[in-house]
Design a protein around this nucleic acid. Structure first.
Lengths: 196, 196, 196, 196
DNA sequence: TATGAATGAGTATTCATTCAT
DNA sequence: GATGAATGAATACTCATTCAT
């Protein structure tokens, strides 16, 4: 197979995921038919099934792409600042994610609570992409945490991350228990307490 | 309408929710058809539409029933113990929920992350049922929290609750970032730090 | 359910089988779509699945109907003659079936070799319809066969019947090993020898 | 084209037929796709169409191969015995075929009633392969049949063969009208009567 | 010759919803 | 209120066939 053919294949798959992403965003997963996806991707019906078993599989691909995108954005923003303090770094990332969801409510509504950092990380590991692991190292490498083992730090981190995602969902979309602006101070205070 | 007729109606609705619960558990929401629900509930197809607009509506009813059930169980167990310390009480409830999901993995898989305490509480409020609010009061009423306003306590509480639900899901079902047994110590340690 | 509603249901099912029969005859089973069947039966798509699981199931119904029809025709024709000799009766039925297929080549092409008397009889038994069993009794009740047990007579009979069906198929449709007119004398001679 | 290239071609075709045979056996003709056939044959999809027009054509090839195989086996077994009596020889072949199907029920289920000796013989003639004709001659060459013309003998033979195939199918697969073990005596008795 | 990615018409099947009884 | 037969639009999915490489 020629290299250009290989590229064409990649492009087709990419187009499908992109089309699915857009449609899921616009009308929700269940209301989006595979028919619409292929139409928007300018690809034949059968081609879809060349790359994905069914709608769930392309859904996973969309979630992975979106989650990855958000975290990478956060990572890049973090690198531009030069925050010496670990807690500040973590709070920065938490805030970045929350703000992303606030600005992109549709994205939040789409991936609901499927924005799960552990799962994204797992996927990345499988694909031997450790960009995000780097970010985690950047965030958490600190004398603060020296009293915890490596494992323990990671797990604490995960807990914080799940917390941020979960609160974002309930607070931004349903204003429960309160609007996100009122939740943020409590949330950040909580994170500080956890890390100190 | 006679009282017994009223009871018959209630029973039909109850049967429908029960049937839906069982089927959602067995084969997932999307793979369960209204046809199957009415068949298992021994009710005619048209009858479904006398009580619910569509599948989403009965789904909400199922989630409310299940969440309520879990929390009530936790409340009753809590009352039998007589834990004087607030932190112990909260940890007890957290542990109770986690253990419930561990023993009923299918339930966890079914309601996924829809087990959201704030949302359940909101629903209870709407139905003017404050049993769960009582439990929250029981948990959080403590001099520990005197430095926080009522509002602030509630919000912290919610954050903890979301955290527990979220971690349960990822950890019990996917062993991410680690099996629940390994996550528990970290989680409880974190909760303690938040509350102290 | 009212009696007329019941009759309506019977009619719908009957229409479906009739439509399927016609289409299978015209264009073969595989080239006939369920879509066409329901269109010709003037029935909605979903209605098909109210009565049959899939195409195979309606195929079975068609085969049963056709086979039954042919055998009943033969039975009636047999009753109008008054053939005293058993062998003559059996040869008459054999000839009737062969001639039916010769005149209705499309039917033969459709049911291929699925015109199997044992299977039809089994089906009839299940439906507690013993008209065909009567015919068999009429054919085979004879002092000729007194040396055989009841079981043995039946089995011989079946062998003859399969033979007739099988030869009809190969001979009428493919002229193998010879056209049916040339095969008949040999076939009848063979049957005579079996029965004498 | 070199001889080895020729051999490669033959091998590809052979692989395709072999793969089709296996798949037809495992999952039936209709449920087997050409895609699966080429995958199992380790051949590209387009290659299929270099050798066969469509699925029917490869089906014919499979039937021919299988039928031929069975009959050749029978022929060889027959040659090892040295049965002087024609009736014994014919009964031996009949029994051999029945036993083959009994041991290879899947094969019987696959080719259904398409195991038709006349049709196989016709195909062999077209390919100028007269091995099977030889077997027929071996079976039927006998003073017994001197009263019949050559043609007549052949036709009787064919009738017997169809009978055996047909009865095998109904009796082995459906136990109709009785299991094959109970049918055999009647069948053999019948064949004897025909030939005497 | 051989390949296998791409096609898209075709097909089975589902299922929420209606409505006459 | 209760029923359940009927509906048919919507949808997922298949697969024989083509054709540029």
């Amino acid at each position: 197979m020629g290299a250009s053919l290989q590229r064409q294949k990649e492009e087709k798959k990419h187009n499908l995921v992109q089309a699915a992403y857009e449609l899921f965003l616009e009308k929700g997963t269940t209301k989006t038919s595979i028919d619409e996806i292929v139409r928007r991707a300018n690809v034949a019906k059968g081609t879809f099934y060349l790359y994905f078993q069914d709608k769930n599989e392309i859904w996973d691909a969309v979630v992975a792409r979106v989650s990855n995108h958000i975290l990478l954005e956060a990572k890049e923003a973090l690198e531009q600042r030069n925050l010496p303090d670990m807690i500040d770094r973590i709070l920065f990332v938490a805030d970045y994610v929350i703000e992303y969801f606030r600005k992109n409510i549709l994205v939040l509504r789409m991936i609901r609570r499927d924005f799960s950092w552990p799962l994204v990380l797992k996927k990345m590991e499988q694909e031997q992409d450790n960009t995000l692991l780097q970010m985690l190292d950047q965030c958490f490498c600190s004398p603060y945490l020296s009293r915890y083992s490596m494992e323990e730090s990671y797990r604490m981190m995960f807990i914080i991350m799940e917390m941020v995602g979960s609160i974002s969902y309930t607070s931004i979309l349903h204003d429960q228990p309160a609007p996100i602006d009122e939740m943020k101070p409590v949330l950040f205070h909580t994170i500080r307490k956890i890390l100190l």
